[in-house]
Nucleic acid binder design. Structure first.
Length: 425
RNA sequence: GGAUGGGUGGCAGAGCGGUUGAAUGCACCGGUCUUGAAAACCGGCAGUCGCGAAAGCGGCUCGUGGGUUCAAAUCCCACCCCAUCCGCCA
């Protein structure tokens, strides 16, 4: 969330930003409530102060009569406070609700508009492949090569679940190792992470468990939910943490399963592995000083590009438009891989993305830093980026590396771990 | 799942109804001393909200939420979390 004071002092700016973000948060109402809240708080403060003085005077009251009179006075003051407090809590609650719905500010270079306004800012090193045969989509390729079992997945857990089989398993493992190796060399601390998290942690990271439109699976009878991304756990790991400035930037890499209900997404690109309820992901996460976050964002983007260049998969980088940024992101880049089997003649499909959330997430998570010589603490910046989302990476590999005879070449970078250079049957 | 113990400032750790927002130690910052450093000594050091140009003043905060009281870190109730041991288990 944004700083409440900042919002109250910049109503026009924040309102305009909401409009560009497609958010209907009522900033004006917030400002009004906040003004009221402050005024009432001042009243409460004053009454509390008086009551405090009265309390102190009781301890050294001269006689019993004096003491009783003072007690009555104290009681009266406290009652007055209680009365105001009730209304104050209501007002604070409503204003807080609005505040939490207000999206982050937007990077001045981010394109304005909806999904269509996104701007292509970069192309990968690998050219779009041409085929002298009709390329198949990954479902057909995998079907011929026995690389997954969607029927079994549906039987066991329902539509959207799957078993990877044979070389697809090796690809999953190879992709993880490939990404982790690079990130370790780049100074990331690698970790596997819990696949469940408390709802408070989800909320702190900006996810909403258990709402009517939630994308999150929750565990009945507990306050745990399955994570939608390791961003949740990597962000939560530093909940309430105060860094020394020298500790930043801190680069983490987390491997987790990701679970998404994909409510409302049925009918669109639901075939195969592209949109599934569970997949494995290697996620990058960074905590930085405010002045470091922009450079870190480009660094994360660069790593994503290197990973996909290394895999030999064609892609383009999109500077996501304001209306498509979601709540926490200040700026977001998506990598869209070329998927020859999609649509009639191939289409771009999102494979990774990286967001700079500035202090938006950190404020709710309470992640701060302290600088020597500076008073107090400030909120850190957080960034996240996908290194590899395994299921979508597999889609891109199968479709780009397919051959006329139905076999699939293994990307050079993965051969060592897959143990072969071609997948055949 | 069962049984204990515990949640207090950056950390460790006292306090167990009234100048306690909180002893003490460590860490940290400033100073004295020193050629420099260390040690020693002296001083400073919680967060947050509100008012204020600032100095400053005031409120709230001792896991969370309720309750008792003029007054709660301290008493009562509920809940959450953590640790250890036992059981079960990859």
């Amino acid at each position: 969330m944004l700083d409440r004071r900042f919002v109250a002092d910049n109503v026009d700016l924040v309102t305009a930003n909401c409009r560009q973000r497609g958010s209907s948060a009522d900033v004006g109402r917030f400002a009004e409530l906040d003004r009221l809240r402050r005024q009432m708080q001042a009243d409460v403060d004053r009454l509390n102060h008086e009551a405090g003085l009265v309390s102190k005077s009781i301890a050294k009251a001269a006689d019993a009569a004096e003491r009783e009179a003072r007690k009555a006075e104290g009681r009266r003051l406290r009652e007055e406070v209680t009365a105001i407090d009730g209304r104050l809590a209501e007002i604070a609650g409503e204003s807080e609700e609005i505040l939490r719905a207000i999206p982050n500010l937007t990077h001045p270079d981010a394109p304005l508009g909806g999904e269509d306004a996104a701007v292509e800012v970069r192309r990968g090193a690998t050219p779009i492949p041409t085929f002298d045969f009709k390329p198949l989509d990954h479902v057909d390729i995998g079907g011929r090569l026995s690389l997954f079992d969607f029927d079994a997945g549906a039987k066991v857990a329902g539509h959207g679940f799957y078993f990877l089989t044979n070389e697809a398993v090796l690809l999953e493992l190879a992709l993880q190792k490939y990404a982790v190796d690079l990130l370790m060399r780049e100074g990331f601390t690698v970790m596997t992470t819990p696949d469940l998290a408390r709802d408070t942690i989800l909320e702190g990271t900006g996810f909403m468990p258990r709402g009517p439109e939630t994308q999150i699976y929750s565990i009945t009878g507990s306050d745990l939910s399955l994570v939608a991304t390791a961003e949740i756990t990597l962000g939560g790991a530093m909940h309430e943490r105060i860094f020394e400035a020298e500790e930043l930037p801190l680069k983490l890499c987390g491997i987790s399963h990701c679970f998404r209900t994909e409510a409302g997404a049925h009918g669109r690109a639901t075939r195969g592995l592209y949109r599934v309820h569970q997949f494995t992901k290697v996620e990058m996460f960074a905590y930085t000083l405010p002045e470091q976050s922009e450079a870190m964002h480009l660094q994360l983007l660069d790593l994503e590009c290197r990973l996909f260049d290394g895999l030999g998969i064609p892609y383009r980088v999109i500077d996501t438009a304001s209306g498509d940024l979601g709540g926490p992101a200040y700026r977001k880049f998506d990598l869209e891989a070329w998927m020859p089997g999609r649509g009639t003649a191939g289409e771009w499909g999102e494979v990774t993305s990286t967001s700079n959330c500035t202090d938006y997430q950190a404020r709710r998570l309470g992640v701060r830093y302290r600088k020597a010589g500076e008073k107090g603490t400030s909120f850190a910046h957080t960034l996240n980026g996908t290194a590899v989302a395994i299921s979508r990476a597999i889609v891109a590999i199968l479709e780009n590396y397919q051959q006329a005879d139905g076999s699939v070449r293994v990307p050079e970078a993965l051969v060592a771990w897959v143990g072969k250079d071609t997948i055949t049957r």
